[in-house]
């Protein structure tokens, strides 16, 4: 078992006919992911690498039984794409798109969480979810993943690949890796993933990769104290980040004394989480637990 995706995940790619959509859909399929449909309004009836394109998510779902959507449309259209997938009750929506306006996301998040929606949103601005050897929905390079007992959740992209690669090269595989995204408002947070990893029989150790900005790591620490029995190893990026400067990710900013890496690491260590000071140390801490 993995969390969020598995062998029975059937993916519809929103924005399949675009450069990014086509490139990543091919990579997902190559990994063994069941990419069953694409959606681009006005391009229904076409095929991209033998995957049928539909005009709407509704048609794609009824035509192919897709049960997960991955979004590669430009930021100005991402909200529409998310809401369209949610309106078709697609259970899992992964939005890779970066630069979605935050007021849009505040409305979308409220709509999905208060409106009795059947959909879980992961992202935006996220690399997606991979269950090694089974399904890869998003842009995580399959080559760094291997199946095993580590559940990995991260706000980052390439930093996650780095840590997956270090784990894999030490012979330590992953049950699932979830990139939740680096934006101020994302659909799925650390706590959602920790809950699922705690329940997942295949996951024995959880690795949490955080960064400066917001309070999600502090909230995760409080949650771990009361709800997670499995060992957790963490890494926080940004100990040397100056306050007030946005470091790449829209959400990665230290505001005054808030959102610092030191405060996050301290909150996690206070509840027994082992925090590594660099990616290799994280892999070493995990190895010591296996």
């Amino acid at each position: 078992m993995a969390i969020f995706v598995d062998r029975d995940t059937r993916v519809v790619v929103q924005g399949l006919t675009g450069e990014q959509g086509r490139f990543h859909a091919a990579r997902m399929a190559e990994y063994g992911t069941r990419v069953v449909a694409g959606v681009t309004p006005g391009k229904g009836g076409q095929q991209v690498d033998k995957v049928p394109v539909f005009d709407s998510v509704e048609e794609a779902v009824s035509g192919t039984g897709a049960n997960a959507a991955v979004i590669f449309v430009p930021a100005a259209h991402a909200t529409d794409a998310i809401l369209e997938a949610a309106a078709s009750a697609v259970p899992l929506i992964i939005c890779v798109t970066e630069g979605v306006p935050v007021h849009d996301m505040a409305r979308v998040y409220t709509h999905l969480s208060c409106g009795g929606s059947a959909s879980r949103l992961i992202g935006p601005n996220c690399p997606g979810v991979i269950a090694p050897g089974r399904s890869n929905v998003g842009i995580i390079p399959g080559s760094v993943a291997s199946p095993g007992p580590v559940g990995l959740v991260s706000r980052s992209g390439t930093l996650t690949y780095q840590i997956m690669d270090e784990l894999t090269s030490m012979g330590i595989g992953q049950s699932t890796t979830v990139g939740i995204g680096g934006d101020p408002i994302v659909g799925t947070d650390f706590i959602d993933c920790l809950t699922r990893f705690e329940q997942d029989p295949e996951t024995e150790i959880v690795v949490l990769i955080g960064e400066i900005g917001g309070e999600d790591e502090e909230k995760a620490a409080a949650f771990i104290a009361g709800n997670v029995s499995k060992p957790v190893v963490a890494y926080i990026a940004g100990f040397t980040a100056p306050p007030g400067k946005r470091m790449g990710h829209a959400g990665a900013i230290v505001s005054g004394s808030r959102g610092t890496a030191a405060a996050k690491a301290a909150a996690l260590e206070a509840v027994g989480v082992r925090v590594g000071r660099n990616p290799s140390e994280v892999a070493g801490l995990v190895a010591a637990l296996t």
Partner: peptide, 21 residues
């Protein structure tokens, strides 16, 4: 570097081994 998280992590690592970005 490529990717915000990896670059932030690289700054930290340079600091850890005694340098400044």
């Amino acid at each position: 570097g490529n990717g915000a998280g990896l670059v932030i992590s690289t700054l930290d690592l340079v600091d850890l081994v005694g340098g400044r970005a």
